[in-house]
Amino acid sequence: MHTTEKYTERVQKLRAEYWTTIGSVNLKDLVFIDVVMQQQLYIEEFPGKLQAR
């Protein structure tokens, strides 16, 4: 989406559909993964496997 499309009827409809979909999601069903923590655990478990760029 471009800034010029921000208030178009099409974009407003897409936003409404998005919030309708999101509103029906049960928050207890969401799973959040801490990517930084996962990377740290991997580094600790497999030292030397990741190479600096």
Rank of each mutant, 00 (worst) to 15 (best):
R10S: 10
T8Q: 02
M37T: 07
I43K: 10
I43S: 04
F32K: 03
V25G: 03
T3G: 08
R53N: 11
A16V: 06
V35L: 15
Q39V: 13
G48N: 02
E9Y: 07
E9G: 03
T21V: 13
Y18G: 04
K49R: 09
G48A: 01
A16R: 09
F32V: 06
P47S: 01
T3H: 15
L41N: 08
V35C: 14
V35M: 13
L41W: 03
I43Y: 04
Q39A: 14
K13H: 13
L14I: 09
A52W: 09
D29A: 06
Y42P: 00
V31I: 15
Q51D: 08
R15L: 12
D34I: 03
K49W: 02
D29F: 00
Y18K: 12
I22L: 13
T20W: 08
T21M: 15
F32T: 03
Q12A: 08
I43F: 07
D29S: 11
Q12T: 04
R53Q: 12
I43E: 11
L41Q: 10
P47N: 00
A16P: 01
E44R: 03
G23W: 05
I43R: 09
E45C: 01
Q12V: 08
Y7T: 04
E44D: 02
G48P: 00
L27D: 12
R10N: 09
V25Q: 07
E45P: 00
R53C: 09
F46L: 01
M37Y: 08
K13G: 05
V36Q: 07
V36A: 10
Q39T: 10
L27Q: 10
E17A: 07
M37W: 06
A52L: 14
E17H: 04
E9Q: 07
V11H: 06
K6L: 13
T20S: 10
L27V: 09
L14E: 11
Q40F: 07
V35D: 08
Y7K: 06
K6I: 04
T21Y: 15
T8P: 00
K13A: 14
E45L: 03
H2F: 15
K28L: 07
E44V: 00
T8M: 02
Q51G: 03
F32H: 05
I43D: 05
L41C: 03
N26G: 05
F46S: 01
E17C: 05
G23Q: 04
M37P: 00
Q51F: 07
D34P: 02
I22E: 06
T8C: 02
E44L: 02
F32L: 09
L30S: 02
T21A: 15
V11F: 11
E17I: 09
K13Y: 14
Y42D: 01
I33Y: 15
E44A: 02
S24H: 12
R10H: 10
E5N: 10
L27M: 12
N26P: 05
R10Q: 11
S24I: 05
A52M: 10
S24L: 12
K49L: 05
I22G: 00
D29M: 02
V11L: 12
